[in-house]
Amino acid sequence: MEFVVKRVYTEDDVKVLKRSIRKRIGRFEKVSKILKIRKCTDPDVGEAYLYLLNMQDGEEIREEIIIEDKKIFSALTPKRFEIIEVSNKFGPISIRELARRANRNYKNVYDDVFSLYRFFLINVVRSGKEKFIIGKTKGFNIQV
C-alpha cells in the first residue's frame, strides 16, 4: 500500500521558506561559503543551498511524498483534515493564525500540526519565533 501526497509551493510559500533559511543559516552567499568550508557535511546547509539555488533561478519546486506506513490512517482525523484545508486556503500560515482561523485551542492545533508533519502531510518551517505551514497539498492518492 502506498499513500501518495503531492504538494506545490506558491510564490508566498517560497518567500517564507527563503526567510526561514536566511534566519537559520544566512543568505545565498553565506550558505555557499559555509558549504565550501565545511565541505558539505552539514545536512541543513546542503539542502538550504539547493533551495536557494533554485530560488535564484525562479524555478518551481515539485514535491511528492510516498507513505508506506499503514499508521497514516490513524493520523487522519476530521480535525486534522480541517488543518490541511485551512492551510491550503490561507497558507503560508503560522500555527497561531491557523488556530485562530480554525477557532481551536493553540496547543491542540500545535499537537495536530506535528502529528501531520510526522507523515509530511503538511510542511512546517521555522521563521524567527513562529512556525509556518507552507505548501499546498494537491490531493491524496492511495495505491494498493
Binding site: E47, Y51, N54, R62, I66, E68
Partner: peptide
Amino acid sequence: MLNIKKILISRGEMIESIEYF
C-alpha cells in the same frame, strides 16, 4: 527546477531525495 521526493518507509524513518535540475 527542484524535485523533492520523500518516502516514509515506516513510522519515524524516511528516505528523501532532493534533485536540482
